[in-house]
Design a protein around this nucleic acid. Structure first.
Lengths: 207, 207
DNA sequence: TGGTGTGAAGTGGTTCACAGCA
DNA sequence: TGCTGTGAACCACTTCACACCA
């Protein structure tokens, strides 16, 4: 299994390259140098070449990379080929916003359902997927082979929800709750904590 | 200026410790060991001690750390003492969600206004701050000495908005647009790209 | 000549392991 | 004895610099 050998940070950057490449392709550009693409992605050229090097030799010396080849290679490696089903748990303010914010599910992911403790009391206008109560969640996950979930429940409930998800077979959690989730080794958790981002930012600005 | 010597990653973790400590304090716990706090925060004990070591010697050997002392030290270092004014630009789906999602502005930050190109056409129900057109933004930033901004405009407009913000004096940008912002050295940009987080996650799950 | 591919050197952050203090 | 504080070893990732090829 060589996928594990590509460092996590590189994968982040490769997602960025992919986005830049798509834009280039729309503009009809067919070939690009590491210098140019690196500038667009906000990284150093050497780093970009190293990152792309994980896929083998894709570029042409003296010329650059084929936008098309790069894109197909990247998306096949990132698994962009098939559509990953994703569910969202917790349809509060933030959760509903994410549901409505279609842009975020663009490439390769399909948000197929949302779950909440009290689905009746929630304003589902402009929410484009079915909203269920949490009772049926496990069954749903198993039936649809859901492997990824977005968690937007309050902090106190996050761990319990995560446990349920993991037990049902979820292997990746995008956690918006301000909590550290304890999960088994094989489950990958990524936190997005808005307050923390701000706090972090504020430390680095001059006053 | 020794603040620059604390690594960015450590600051992230310290925000987490701070949250854990607050919970401990609520429970009336006065003293905690590095092992226990580290477990709560999801890091290794040695790392926690190293992180806290940036502040000098806070703990008591053989005993642990005082929750209270730790909290006050951390919040004074992170600048939690004063309220940082923050503005948000781009009141689309995601932007409005963030505005309504009050929880995210809890400690130390105050979202004082939002700006959008077309403020008239936007549903401002349950949005708790004034929404202005972008014309008055620069003046507003200068007047209120805003140093941090949350950017939720479409990708194509993000760079231009960032330029305006920086020119007006903003030094930290939390960027939700799927773009790499080019900014001067002294401006700190943090990206939150939801699609990318998912993409990243999907790479690390088994199938 | 221009730009990739890559070993080697450098850097930053993490972990270890143990001295030292309550 | 228990737990902090910290130099030193370790590791992962980044950057350099140059060989190599279209």
């Amino acid at each position: 299994m060589d996928r594990i050998e590509i460092p996590r940070k590189a994968i982040y950057r490769i997602s960025i390259y992919s986005r830049c490449l798509r834009r280039l392709q729309e503009k009809g550009i067919e070939t690009i140098s590491s210098t140019a693409l690196a500038a667009a992605a906000g990284v150093k050229p050497a780093q970009l070449r190293k990152d792309l090097g994980y896929f083998g030799q894709l570029g042409t010396r003296g010329l650059g990379y084929s936008v098309e080849l790069l894109l197909t290679t990247i998306s096949s490696v990132l698994g962009g080929a098939r559509l990953h089903p994703v569910i969202l748990v917790g349809a509060g303010n933030l959760g509903r916003a994410l549901l409505r914010y279609t842009g975020f599910m663009k490439e390769g992911f399909e948000l197929i359902a949302a779950f909440d403790k009290f689905p009746e009391s929630i304003d589902t206008s402009r929410v484009p997927v079915p909203l269920h109560g949490e009772e049926g969640m496990v069954e749903f996950i198993e039936k649809h082979q859901v492997r990824m979930a977005v968690v937007c429940v309050p902090a106190e409930q996050a761990q319990q929800v995560a446990n349920t998800l993991v037990e049902a077979g979820v292997q990746g959690i995008l956690n918006f709750s301000p909590t550290i989730l304890q999960t088994p080794e094989h489950v990958v958790v990524t936190r997005v904590d808005l307050a923390m981002e701000l706090e972090n930012l504020s430390f680095f600005i001059d006053q």
